[in-house]
């Protein structure tokens, strides 16, 4: 009995000794994380807060999170009902899904070839792929724009999707992932009579679900949030993506910031909600590919 109490006392002491020097370090760590979280979250808070204010209050020198005059209803009503908001959302969906599907269709076979097939010049080809990652869209946008003008495809869905059909990043990501797939299984499949496409569809893809999920989120978010390219190639309102529709409240003479922020909130919401749902899958995909986003 005495032995037990003694041991308890000992563990208690050890526990305290363990806690004490760490508690200060912990406090600092927590404070640091709070600061980081605040930096990340504050723009969102600002966005939501401003979306509830009239324009002149957005410009007010004394910033407060709680709006003095509440214009939330007017702002959100204007965004959701004075314009074809659902059309914008649908356009965004069409563009993002279209881009993603073609990206997967092109990147998966290319990545498989680079990861698992032996052919002359595969290393050079892969080097080219890596090099292509470094070229930003701004470099290629003017030639592509001129091309689209020439074939008369401006102001269409195709125009919005076309530059993104080939994702070099996807090829790289999938190639790294596929390399981990055992060669012997592929060889067994060849002996069993699988075609190369069947090897991809029946064997590689089911094992690559985390990588595909991770890339899908990357791609979807990137193109959902893309303002630059739709702004260049689309003029008519019925083709506008949700992100582009925010620009409608800006003109040379007058900008309705309350509504712009309300619009931004409404446009961001679907992505944030989707991310919260798919968070676990997303993180697993990132860690499994060894690519830290």
């Amino acid at each position: 009995m005495a032995d037990i109490t003694q041991r308890q006392a000992k563990t208690k002491l050890a526990w305290r000794a363990h806690l004490k020097p760490r508690s200060l370090g912990r406090a600092i760590t927590t404070a640091f994380l709070f600061l980081g979280a605040w930096v990340m979250i504050f723009p969102f808070i600002w966005m939501i807060s401003s979306s509830l204010k009239p324009t002149d209050e957005v410009y007010d020198s004394t910033f407060s999170i709680i709006p003095k005059t509440f214009k939330g209803f007017e702002n959100y009503y204007g965004v959701l009902f004075d314009q074809p908001y659902l059309i914008f959302l649908m356009n965004s969906m069409i563009v993002c899904v279209g881009i993603l599907v073609i990206q997967l269709l092109t990147a998966v076979p290319a990545a498989y070839a680079l990861a698992k097939l032996k052919f002359r010049g595969s290393n050079i080809l892969f080097g080219t792929v890596i090099a292509a990652i470094t070229i930003p869209i701004n470099v290629t946008s003017i030639p592509i724009y001129i091309g689209l003008v020439k074939v008369g495809l401006l102001d269409t869905y195709i125009a919005m999707m076309f530059p993104f059909f080939l994702s070099v990043f996807a090829i790289f990501l999938f190639r790294q992932f596929f390399r981990g797939f055992p060669d012997s299984i592929i060889q067994a499949a060849r002996v069993d009579g699988f075609t190369e496409i069947e090897i991809i569809v029946r064997l590689i893809l089911p094992s690559a679900v985390p990588a595909i999920a991770a890339f899908s989120v990357f791609s979807f978010v990137a193109h959902w949030n893309d303002l630059y390219w739709p702004l260049i190639v689309v003029q008519s309102q019925d083709k506008m993506t949700a992100t582009l529709s925010m620009m409608q409240y800006q003109s040379n003479f007058d900008t309705d910031y309350g509504r712009t922020f309300a619009s931004a909130t409404v446009v961001t919401a679907p992505m944030v909600i989707a991310f919260l749902f798919a968070r676990r899958l997303f993180i697993r995909g990132i860690t499994m590919t060894g690519v830290k986003g």
Partner: peptide, 27 residues
């Protein structure tokens, strides 16, 4: 390989990982 009608057993078995035994056998 397919046209040669040979079968091969691999050192690490090389079973199709996400298929059941029945599917593996039927492939």
């Amino acid at each position: 390989p397919k046209e040669r009608n040979v079968a091969m057993v691999f050192q690490d078995y090389a079973l199709y990982p996400h298929m059941s035994v029945a599917e593996n056998l039927s492939m």
